[in-house]
Structure formats: structure tokens, C-alpha cells
Write a protein that binds this DNA or RNA. Structure first.
Lengths: 253, 253
DNA sequence: ATTAAATGTTTGGATGTGTCAAACGTCAGT
DNA sequence: ACTGACGTTTGACACATCCAAACATTTAAT
């Protein structure tokens, strides 16, 4: 992520304010001014500008994010051509497996969940559509890393700040690269309690005939149900079938 | 919508750029510079700032909206307490009626679609989650107007720019007010081909015991299926049931 | 190949604008 | 009525934004 030479400070400030509103859900002028260490007057002007454009809502003294962002989100998703097809397949996948199924895409070196479907027995996680996570410790993340162009992969790995989230989290770039090679051979990536203890995930890439990566589909479930042949045979088969259907449809776009 | 006394121009410019990207889906620096009548250098700096923050993505020369807006959209929706409950009921409503069911909320004098469920025979419209429309010519819109505080209603009507979208569109504030009174009595609003020829809609408000308005639920279908007792009895009954369930759950928040 | 034409990017300098501190207005609680 | 806390407005100064032009880079054409 090459940083801008001449970032526009006023805009940066506004984006920081939006970020605070995202974290806090609601905030007053003074709250934000304290948090970001700016004068009340400045924050006020920024919020007023945002409000005028519908990006912020004011309830009494409390400001919060406006629903207009949903509109922007829709238009952003519009760029993902396979969204509709994949969505349908992820629904099926969730129904067939009973687990939670996800569709994730890479952007700016992060994995962004674009769709989530819950099967009958799906685990409850704080994962939501729009959720962003680091690539190195999830199944989809490792899939995306494995199948993206090498230079980009190395760039992302170089900029990754490895954290030992659980005992199983991979924190060594070398080990990660080795596992990515395996994943390229097998076509399936696993997450063995590397993100959350007790949770296992597996994912596969969506690619066209040229090998261009479009995203990844995954299943997440409790370790108790994710073992033996179900984990190594049954569920991978379901995912591969779902992914194949999407891939067939890519050409017709 | 009281305009800001001292809007921050640089921020306004960035928001205008975002708007162009929303409309065009993809655009180059020059495209945007021409469209907004700014120098290329200026647009470049703004885009660089946005990209650095993940709000914009660059593919070669083409810029487009980043998926990070989905994250913001999620947090904005978070503010709508009844979202989850209503969503479930709208799903049922669509299944029962076979038509398209919607959940809409008012913000900044506009109706914003927060959830959409398609029944078996649902009409296909360009309506999407996040879609914003004027209140005066839709069923949900009229519901929201009818049940909001009077001063706010008058403020919105005063600022409304009435357009004759179809022959049936109400363009007279007086007539609109009269119909809103009816709607308050009946508890159901109709849209008789006022937005799109051939499409009929009906909606009801979601309110708590104090009468505070939370949003509206509606059904949309082709005029051929939306007539006689189905329109005046059957469908209103379904909607009322859905709305009631949500309303009961409001108190437990 | 070589040139030409668009484009993205960077630069420096003049203008105009964002920022702050302080004053003002408003509201809630005592 | 008074106090405190907050949002809003004001005015003036510092400096950030913007433009035009030069530069770099890519694409198209000859």
C-alpha cells in the first residue's frame, strides 16, 4: 500500500472522524474532538459537511454514521461480477453442510467477507458482511494468498504483522509459504483453530480458466464436527462443487 | 436539511468524487477532473488520500469504490435496533405473499431500503438494499410521512420537489396531506402505480407503544395481482401481522 | 522503430481556506 | 437565578489546497 505523497489533510481528518463514529456507534462533538485531539470547532465543521451530504446523522447531540453508506456499499459490491452467482452457491453450501458458509474477496491485502449464509447448525460468530481480516490466519486468507500473483503475495507477506492469536496461529513467514505451496497443490486450505480456539475452517479459490483469482468460498464449524473424512473428503467435495459452478459461469460474463 | 455554514471544501470535493465513482462505477483521473471541472492534480491527490484509507481501489488507470464501504454500511445499519427482527418477518412476508417485501426507514427526508426479500413470483425491479427514494410517491414513503411528527412532515413536504413521474403520481401537497390523513386512519398506505406504471405497493408503519416511528414494511407487485380483496384484505392482514410481531419485540430491547 | 498523443504524477508558488482560541448561545441540573 | 457542559459561531493567522506547467509513463499511430 504505497502511501500518498500529498494526502489531503482535511479529507484525512474527515475519514478519521468517520472511523471514530464506526467504532463508537455514536459520539458527540466533544467526544470526537478529545479522541482525535482537535478543536471542537474543527470537528463541528467536518461533521456539518458530512451531514449535509447525508453521510452522518445527528440525533440531538449524538452523531452517527448515515444509512447512505449502504448505497455506496451496494455500488462497491457491484464491481464484483460473480457476486450474484456465488451468493446462490454459498446459500446451497450452507444448507447442504449445515455449517456457516462464506464468500470472501481480497482488497488492499485484506480479506473482506462479501456474503455469509448460515446452515442449520451454523456456529455464531461476530463475523458480518463487510468484515475485514488479515489473510495469514484464516482459511480463505491462505487460499487467496496461495493463488494470487507471486509478487503481490510477497508484498502482502512482507507487510504483514504476524500475531500469535491462538497457539495454532502461523507466525513464521517461511512456514506460511510452505503451507501455501501445499494449498496450491491440494486446492483446499484449512484453518485449524488458528483464528479462534475451537473453530475450524476450510476454503477453496474461485478462478477462471486463465487462473485469475476472483475470491474464495469457505465453511466454518466447531472442531468437534470438523474432523476425519468429513473434513478431508465430504466438505471439500461440497466446496469444490460450489466453486466449480461459479467458475463455469465466469466465462459467460 | 439545514446547510452547513462553513462546509469544508476539500471534503466536499472528495465526496463529489465518491459520488462520481458511484455513478460511473469506474473512472480515470481525467474523467473525474472533466466531470467536476477540477485540475487533474487535485483529483489525483484526493483519490490518493481515499486509496490510502481503503475507500477507493485502483485498477490500472481505473478507480472505483472500495469494499470498505461495506464495513461502514454494516456499522450504519447497526444503529437500526429492529433490523434483525424485521428482516426475519420480511422474509416470511415474502414467502407467504409470493411478492417482493421490503423494510424501509426514513433518513434525511428520504426512504432508504434496508432489506428486501423476494417471494416466489416477485417482480424484478432495480430496487436494491440501500436504494433511496423520495417519500411522496411510494407506499412506504407515504406511511413514513403519515406517522412521523407533524413538524418534520411539513418540513419534508415543504422541501419536496414534486414530479409527475407517472399519471398517478400525487404532485399536489394538499392532496398528499389529505391522503396521509386517510393513511393514519387506515394504518395502510397504497401506491397505485404512482412510481412505476403497472406496479402497486402497500405498506404499514412499525411503531412502539408511544407511537414512535421506527420504519415501514411493504409489499410490491404487479397491478394484475394486486386488486380486489387481496389488495384490501388479504395482503394488509399479512403486513399487519408481520408489523405486530416486530412491534412486540421493540419493547424488549 | 519512432513519433505522437493521452494519460498519471510531481512540483512550486499564490491564493484562499481550515484551524484554533475565544466568545457566544443554549440547555440541564442544582 | 446560577452554574457547568456542551454545540455553535466568529475572526484572524498559518499553512494547506489548488492550479498550471513540467515531467514521467503509457498507449496508439505512423
Amino acid at each position: 500500500m504505497n502511501s500518498a505523497k500529498h494526502p489531503i489533510q482535511a479529507v484525512q481528518r474527515t475519514l478519521d472522524i468517520v472511523d471514530v463514529l464506526k467504532e463508537k456507534r455514536e459520539a458527540r462533538v466533544t467526544d470526537i474532538a478529545d479522541e482525535l485531539d482537535f478543536s471542537k470547532g474543527t470537528i463541528h465543521c467536518h461533521l456539518a459537511t458530512l451531514e449535509q451530504n447525508g453521510y452522518v446523522v445527528k440525533n440531538g447531540q449524538q452523531y452517527s454514521l448515515g444509512l447512505q453508506f449502504i448505497d455506496l456499499a451496494h455500488h462497491a459490491t457491484d464491481r464484483v461480477d460473480i457476486y450474484d452467482i456465488t451468493r446462490a452457491e454459498v446459500d446451497k453450501l450452507a444448507a447442504e453442510s449445515g455449517e456457516m458458509a462464506l464468500f470472501t474477496v481480497e482488497e488492499h491485502g485484506e480479506g473482506i467477507c462479501l456474503y455469509k449464509a448460515e446452515g442449520e447448525d451454523a456456529v455464531q460468530t461476530e463475523l458480518y458482511v463487510g468484515y475485514r481480516n488479515e489473510l495469514y490466519h484464516t482459511a480463505v486468507g491462505k487460499v487467496l494468498l496461495a493463488f494470487m500473483p507471486e509478487e503481490r503475495r510477497e508484498e502482502i507477506i512482507r507487510e504483514t504483522n504476524f500475531e500469535q492469536i491462538t497457539p495454532n496461529t502461523i507466525t513464521d513467514p517461511g512456514k506460511l509459504r510452505a503451507q501455501l505451496t501445499e494449498i496450491r497443490e491440494r486446492g483446499i486450505a484449512y484453518n485449524h483453530e488458528e483464528t479462534i480456539q475451537g473453530l475450524v475452517g476450510l476454503g477453496a479459490p474461485i478462478r477462471d480458466q486463465d487462473g485469475t483469482l476472483y475470491g474464495a468460498v469457505s465453511l466454518i464449524g466447531p472442531v468437534s464436527r470438523m474432523e476425519d473424512e468429513r473434513l478431508t473428503e465430504e466438505l471439500p467435495k461440497l466446496i469444490r462443487r460450489a466453486v466449480n459452478i461459479v467458475e463455469v459461469n465466469i466465462t459467460s460474463l
